[in-house]
């Protein structure tokens, strides 16, 4: 493989894994932007979604791609539930309180699955999406490619929902200024409910797609959540295209750093660039809506 192919391969790897990060980050970004809540349990919702896909596969033989709509609907309601039973009480709480609440949720979800499913590593075997496309000496894993595609579709849908529907506009208004939105007759409580539902549904998609090429394990969320934080902050919270930009940027930095410098330090590059960006652009690349 000569250098051109190598660089191409690295770019492809970076974009593909970046798509995964972006898909994970977009739900986080939505909740973060509208409600100013950093969801520390985000990685655990991701894990739960992957587990749901796995359960559908192992008990009903449904491929993750087929059970995807089911998982999304389930997670929409899980999101509603989270808002209704937990986060509703914390709407005007300080940042720290919400961090602690979501962290507690994260412990409960993570170890709840741990208790029920035991710490075994599971992989969905022979999913519909498997293998790779090989173009000359470049390989493109199909599962990750489809994930990127679904990430883009999700983001387009979400973007148009926020931009062109009445509810979407209300969400954006709430994100901009909660009090003003309230005075304009927006039902803020309902908006929060929708936001949580959508945010968790997005992570449901991410988890379901992840289960096609990643192992399913009760503690898997931890590995993704930090990267998701970085993606969201890099793009600027509350912005949908910011999340995809952040995810892709981080994927590319990680792959370039890991391949050409040192794999052990690949996350150092990610977090290093991330801090530099924050220092010079304290609100990330794309601010709020």
């Amino acid at each position: 493989m000569d250098l051109v192919y190598l660089i191409l391969q690295v770019i492809i790897n970076g974009i593909l894994i970046g798509g995964v990060y972006a898909l994970i980050a977009v739900g986080l970004s939505l909740i973060w932007g509208v409600m100013e809540i950093v969801n520390f349990a985000h990685g655990d919702y991701l894990m739960a979604a992957a587990f749901f896909s796995f359960i559908f596969w192992s008990y009903m033989g449904l491929d993750p791609l087929i059970s995807l709509p089911l998982v999304v609907v389930i997670f929409l309601f899980i999101g509603f539930g989270t808002q209704k039973f937990v986060m509703k009480r914390l709407i005007d709480s300080p940042t720290l309180i919400t961090i602690a609440a979501t962290f507690a949720l994260s412990l409960i979800i993570r170890y709840g699955f741990f208790v029920v499913f035991k710490p075994d590593y599971r992989v969905i075997r022979d999913p519909l999406l498997q293998g790779s496309l090989h173009i000359s000496s470049i390989s493109i894993p199909i599962a990750k490619m489809v994930t990127l595609l679904i990430a883009i579709i999700t983001m387009i849908l979400l973007f148009s929902f926020l931009k062109y529907t009445k509810k979407g506009r209300a969400i954006r208004a709430t994100a901009q200024d909660r009090e003003v939105a309230k005075s304009l007759g927006v039902n803020v409580e309902q908006i929060f409910l929708i936001t949580w539902g959508l945010g968790i549904a997005c992570v449901g998609i991410a988890g379901a797609m992840l289960s096609t090429f990643y192992y399913v394990f009760p503690l898997m969320g931890v590995t993704f959540v930090l990267i998701a934080f970085a993606s969201v902050t890099l793009g600027g919270f509350g912005s949908v295209h910011g999340a995809i930009f952040g995810g892709l940027a981080i994927g590319l930095i990680q792959q370039f750093g890991g391949t050409f410098v040192s794999p052990a330090l690949k996350d150092v590059f990610v977090f290093g660039v991330f801090i530099l960006v924050l220092i010079f652009k304290p609100k990330g690349f794309f601010g709020k809506y």
Binding site: V10, I17, V20, T223, I227, Q255, G258, T259, P263, K266
Partner: peptide, 11 residues
């Protein structure tokens, strides 16, 4: 426990 190993394998 890193989320992705493609850089390592590529190397």
């Amino acid at each position: 426990e890193t989320p992705d190993l493609s850089a390592e394998v590529l190397r």
